[in-house]
């Protein structure tokens, strides 16, 4: 007995001496959430998180076209848009008009071109210009809980979407690196990571932080894609430099990653993304489409070798 005021006070129990939490079983609820994620992804062979460090490097376009390339190579592919506040994948893969279908015990992904499965916050928002606002007793000091809410929303997408059999589930992360530790916690040992950069020192400097953070969190980072690596002349097809910089292999080596390849800049990539058509399907004979296919093949070979 701890007692108060009886002259025989002893040290009261401490947190770790008390079993349970009085009935809420919060830890068990959190473990159950994680078990749901694990169970839902049991039929997905490779979960690949794609990060960029800085925004504007074309990560989502790369993800969309890698998904399309792998699908063309016979792989079953899904894409989860991890950028809740700036969802772009649904538009790029032509499913922006679809609505996330929620059934009794799961949510069903939208089916895009070539059979790519897509889930994005965009499938829930009423208009393209609708921002993500979470209902709350007060929006004051939203920074206190907004990050937690976004992490929980990402967890719910992973736990509740029924992807079925997939060879690849790409998670298109928002710019920055803060989502990586959360993913590692949810998908311990299941998720591998790749990064997208452009031939710019600033881009590489920032993406290096994402690589270090991901490794610290225990994510196996397996490759780097360099986007906008040269410009394809629309008249003659020659590829010229767009940014000065080291070659991609050297850049990847400096990150301690294998280079998965380079993608030249082609303005038609952006046009196709705006229309919701996979560039590699519309312009299959271009240098950029061939580059996407080569990156997809390298990624596939690397991950198949990992098992």
């Amino acid at each position: 007995m701890a007692g108060l005021g009886n002259g025989k006070e002893t040290k009261m129990k401490r947190y770790r001496e008390i079993v349970g939490d009085g009935g809420s079983a919060v830890l068990a609820q959190v473990q159950e959430q994680r078990a749901r994620v694990e169970s839902r992804l049991a039929r997905v062979r490779h979960v690949v998180a794609v990060a960029s460090g800085k925004g504007g490097v074309g990560k989502s376009v790369v993800v969309a076209n890698l998904a399309a390339s792998l699908t063309q190579q016979g792989r079953r592919v899904g894409v989860l848009d991890g950028d809740l506040n700036g969802p772009a994948i649904a538009r790029m893969l032509g499913v922006g008009h679809q609505t996330l279908r929620v059934e009794r015990d799961h949510a069903a992904p939208a089916i895009g071109p070539l059979g790519i499965k897509v889930v994005s916050m965009a499938l829930l928002l009423p208009r393209d210009d609708t921002p993500v606002i979470w209902e709350a007793p007060t929006q004051d000091d939203a920074y206190v809980w907004r990050g937690t809410m976004e992490a929980s929303a990402a967890r719910e997408f992973l736990a509740d979407v029924e992807w079925g059999e997939l060879d690849y589930l790409f998670i298109d992360l928002p710019p920055g690196a803060e989502r990586l530790p959360h993913l590692a916690g949810l998908l311990a040992g299941r998720v591998r990571g790749a990064v997208v950069t452009i031939p710019s020192q600033v881009s590489r400097m920032i993406v290096a932080k994402a690589v270090v953070l991901a490794r610290t969190a225990g994510i196996d980072m397996f490759g780097e894609v360099e986007n906008m690596a040269g410009y394809v002349c629309p008249r003659c097809g020659a590829v010229g430099d767009l940014f000065p910089g080291d070659d991609a292999e050297a850049a990847a080596t400096s990150l301690g990653l294998p280079s998965l390849g380079t993608i030249p800049f082609d303005p038609r990539i952006a046009l196709c993304a705006d229309r919701g058509d996979p560039f590699i399907a519309v312009y299959p004979d271009t240098a950029a489409a061939e580059a996407f296919a080569a990156v997809a093949s390298r990624l596939d070979a690397l991950l198949e070798a990992c098992g």
Partner: peptide
């Protein structure tokens, strides 16, 4: 399914 997102967005 999607209880938190649908109940909060």
């Amino acid at each position: 399914p999607m209880e938190l997102v649908r109940g909060t967005l």
